[in-house]
Amino acid sequence: MRKVFQAELHQVGEELIQISTLVKEALVRAADSFLNSDIEEAEEVISNDQRIDFLQNQLDERCIDILALQGPVASDLRAIVSSLRMSSSLERMGDLARHVAQIARMRFPEKAVPEEVATIFSEMVELDTQIIDSVIKLLETRELSLTEEIYSHKARINNLHREVFKMMNAEDWQHSPQVTVDVTLASRYLERFGDHGVSVARKVNYLVTGEWS
Rank of each mutant, 00 (worst) to 15 (best):
I120M: 11
Q130K: 13
E126A: 14
I103Q: 13
A79G: 06
S88Y: 01
D128P: 03
A68H: 04
D60W: 05
D65H: 03
V125F: 08
S88D: 01
D172C: 07
N169Q: 14
P72K: 09
E126T: 11
N158D: 14
S122T: 14
P114W: 14
G94A: 05
D128R: 02
H153K: 15
A155D: 08
D172T: 11
P114I: 13
P72Q: 11
P109I: 04
L146P: 01
E123C: 10
A104F: 04
Q58T: 10
S82K: 06
T129P: 05
G94E: 02
A101R: 10
V164P: 05
S88Q: 04
T141L: 12
E143H: 07
I120T: 13
D65S: 10
A170F: 07
M124W: 11
H161V: 00
L160I: 03
V73I: 15
M93R: 03
K137C: 02
S83E: 02
L96W: 07
I157V: 15
L160K: 10
M93L: 05
A101E: 09
L138A: 08
K166A: 11
L69V: 04
V117G: 02
D95N: 09
N57E: 08
R92I: 09
S87M: 03
V113G: 00
N159K: 13
H99L: 03
S122E: 14
R98K: 15
L138G: 13
L67Y: 11
M124S: 07
D76H: 09
E143R: 09
P109Q: 13
H99V: 01
I132Q: 09
Y151L: 12
F121W: 12
R98L: 07
V135S: 00
R142E: 05
N158K: 12
